[in-house]
């Protein structure tokens, strides 16, 4: 059996993947193994279908997400990202996060929030580009780990902005 998410979903082990292709591959495979296809089969067979289908869901989730895909790729290159040893110690990142948090607290108009959201989304796009470069071209895994940390923090911030937007509207 294929062992990693990339192989399972028929994707080459790269950070820069086409999400439409990924989705198509996922749906094709899910059509083969989903438990609904085995409804009139004996229970053990249904269980197999369930396990296959669950595994596909897990792999798809991993590859779809910008952060977990990076982590999966580091696993693939046998230099796993360990969240325990990668805490925010980088003073630049620390400063950035405190600055953003302060901004978010001060915001009170819809427009401000919207603009701030756009800014953060643009930063995320830039970090993802940088990640592609480091993982696919430069193979600088140390740098990639730092970028994962930054992405994690930015995604969390984005969720908080959206929650604030929803609460206000």
């Amino acid at each position: 059996m294929p062992v990693n998410a990339f192989e399972t979903l028929g994707m080459s082990p790269e950070y820069d993947i086409n999400l439409d292709t990924l989705s198509n591959h996922y749906l094709e495979r899910q059509r083969l193994v989903h438990p609904d296809r085995f409804i009139s089969k004996p229970s053990e067979e249904k269980l197999y279908a369930q396990q296959h289908s669950s595994y596909l869901n897990q792999c798809y989730q991993t590859l779809k997400d910008n952060i977990s895909r990076a982590e999966a790729l580091l696993d693939y290159h046998k230099t796993p990202f360990d969240s325990a040893e990668n805490t925010i110690q980088d003073p630049v990142l620390l400063h950035e996060s405190m600055d953003h948090r302060e901004k978010l607290m001060m915001m009170d108009t819809k427009e401000q929030l919207y603009n701030f959201k756009q800014d953060i989304e643009n930063i995320i796009k830039a970090v993802v580009l940088e990640m592609k470069n480091n993982l696919d071209a430069l193979k600088d895994f140390h740098k990639a780990k730092k970028l994962i940390l930054r992405l994690k923090y930015l995604e969390k911030l984005l969720t908080e902005i959206k929650q604030k937007e929803a609460a206000d509207s």
Binding site: E28, R31, L32, V33, R37, F38, S40, K41, P42, S43, E44, E45, Y48, A49
Partner: peptide, 13 residues
């Protein structure tokens, strides 16, 4: 049962 049957999409059992 373990003889998992895989059929092509759209084909009936």
């Amino acid at each position: 049962m373990s003889l998992l049957q895989i059929h092509e999409p759209g084909k009936t059992p």
